[in-house]
Amino acid sequence: MSLALDLFTIVAVTLGAIFFLAGTVGLLRFPDTLTRLHALTKADNLGLGLVVLGLLPQATAPFGWIGLIAVWLLALLSGATVGQLLAEAVRPPEWDQARTPDASPVGHPNAPEASSHD
């Protein structure tokens, strides 16, 4: 039984590491920020999820499990938020205008006066 659990750990953590590798390759190779974000958040969500899943049999019940799952959920939450914020900061202004044609040209998020902090 413990051999099966160890094998499960090895397989799941290896799969997670492959997702992290693929995410890193995507981050380096994809052409623009939005596609790079996709690669990065995929690695965070699935890669970390698989690593956590693989480590569950090795952790002590129940607090080790709760801790590992909490780490994964918090990484999901922060990763999703940061992805949204970065995407919002880099999206071209035409997209907003295409969605709301009569909107007045408000300060574009990428414009220098909105991105500086002073």
């Binding site: 918090l74 939450l77 922060s78 938020t81 949204q84 914020l85 919002e88 909105a114 902090h117 002073d118």
Partner: peptide
């Protein structure tokens, strides 16, 4: 203090700022 002026409303940040602090 003037460095941390609020980010645009309607973004994902206020949601994170509501969900994360309890934890």
């Amino acid at each position: 203090p003037g460095f941390l002026t609020p980010w645009r409303s309607g973004s994902a940040l206020p949601l994170l700022a509501r969900v994360l602090p309890p934890f």
